Computed example of a mutant assay.
Amino acid sequence: MRLMEPGREVEVSRDLLPATLARHGVVLIRQGSIAEVRALLDRWTVPVDHPHQVADGLTVIAPRVRLDDCDNEAGFTDLPLSPHTDRSLHAQPPSVLATLMLTPARAGGSATLVDGAQVLALLRRRAEDAAIAGLRLRTATGQPGPPVVEFVPGHARIRYRDDRIAGPYSTDGRADLVAGFRRLASETTRFLQLGAGDGYLVHNHRFLHGRTAFTGGRTLVRFLARVDNDHPYAWLNRGFPIASS
Rank of each mutant, 00 (worst) to 15 (best):
P232M: 08
F214H: 08
L58C: 02
D172L: 15
G199P: 05
F214P: 00
R30A: 15
E128V: 00
G109R: 00
V119I: 03
T141S: 13
I242D: 01
R164Y: 06
D163H: 07
L89I: 02
A55R: 02
L192D: 01
L192C: 04
Q193P: 03
F181C: 12
E73G: 06
R106Q: 14
L184F: 10
A39L: 12
L123M: 14
R164W: 08
R23Y: 11
A234D: 08
R138V: 15
D42S: 15
A39W: 03
V48R: 13
R124V: 00
A22V: 04
D230N: 10
T212I: 05
P18R: 05
T112C: 04
P93K: 01
A234V: 06
Q118M: 13
N72Y: 10
P147T: 10
T20A: 14
R30T: 11
L192N: 00
F191A: 11
V48Q: 11
F207S: 06
P93L: 08
A117G: 15
C70N: 14
R218V: 06
T141F: 07
A127W: 11
R87S: 15
S82W: 14
G25N: 02
G173D: 12
V48M: 10
L135Y: 09
V149R: 01
Q193V: 13
R136M: 11
R183V: 03
Q143H: 13
A19I: 07
G134R: 12
G173C: 13
T219N: 03
R238D: 10
R159E: 01
L81M: 14
V60C: 07
R138Y: 06
I61S: 05
T188K: 01
E128P: 03
G217Q: 09
R30V: 08
G195M: 09
G173I: 12
P63F: 02
T112Y: 01
T189Y: 02
A98S: 12
G180A: 15
V119C: 04
L79E: 11
R161A: 09
R206C: 10
A133Q: 12
G217N: 14
L201F: 06
T212F: 10
L177Q: 09
A156H: 10
V152W: 08
L137K: 08
G216D: 03
L41Y: 08
L208Q: 04
L137S: 05
S245R: 13
N72C: 07
Y169K: 00
L120K: 00
I165N: 13
W44V: 00
L81T: 05
D162G: 05
G199K: 08
I61E: 07
A39P: 01
I61D: 05
V54W: 03
F240I: 05
P6L: 01
R138A: 12
S13Q: 08
L79D: 09
L201P: 10
L28W: 04
A105Y: 05
R14C: 07
Y200C: 00
I29S: 07
F214G: 02
G116A: 04
M4S: 06
E187D: 15
R43S: 14
L192R: 01
I242Y: 00
L102C: 05
I165A: 09
G142L: 06
D15L: 10
R211T: 11
A111W: 00
V114F: 00
D198K: 06
R8P: 02
Q53E: 14
D86Q: 05
R218K: 07
T139N: 09
G173M: 10
W44Y: 13
N229D: 12
